[in-house]
């Protein structure tokens, strides 16, 4: 987790994204405990309610689950769930803005395809 927040999106979304990144990178493994809202709050100087909102979002999506009295844990299959979720979001997050920018620059479909192929090498 980096702990540097930008003001592009709400903090709670960035907290959720940070935890997801850690799960993808293997910093947090499945069935492992994630930091509590208080720990996150103290670590990043944010309000615990904000941290809680981020965690609850992941709980709703089935990426984390709650063990009563102990804390929040990474769910089984969370890694795959995150990949699937981000694949879905890929279009909105990257592709639409890529196309829009390309259109603004007057790039043709072929030029765009060539660039993508070059990047994939």
């Amino acid at each position: 987790m980096t702990g540097n927040f930008n003001d592009a999106t709400s903090i709670y979304l960035q907290i959720a994204a940070m935890l997801e990144d850690d799960i993808l990178r293997g910093v947090l493994l499945e069935q492992e405990r994630v930091p509590s809202t208080n720990e996150l709050a103290r670590a990043y100087s944010i309000n615990p309610a904000t941290a809680a909102k981020g965690i609850n979002l992941l709980v709703e999506e089935g990426i984390l689950y709650k063990k009563r009295g102990i804390g929040m844990f990474v769910a089984q299959g969370a890694h795959d769930k995150i990949i699937a979720k981000r694949k879905d979001a890929f279009y909105e997050t990257y592709v639409t803005s890529l196309v829009r920018e390309a259109r603004a620059l007057g790039l043709t479909k072929e030029e765009l395809k060539a660039m993508i192929e070059r990047a994939q090498q």
């Binding site: 709050a41 103290r42 100087s45 944010i46 309000n47 615990p48």
Partner: peptide, 10 residues
């Protein structure tokens, strides 16, 4: 200060 405040609040 913000750290101390959050320590107390949590």
């Amino acid at each position: 200060f913000y750290k101390i405040l959050l320590d107390d609040y949590t």
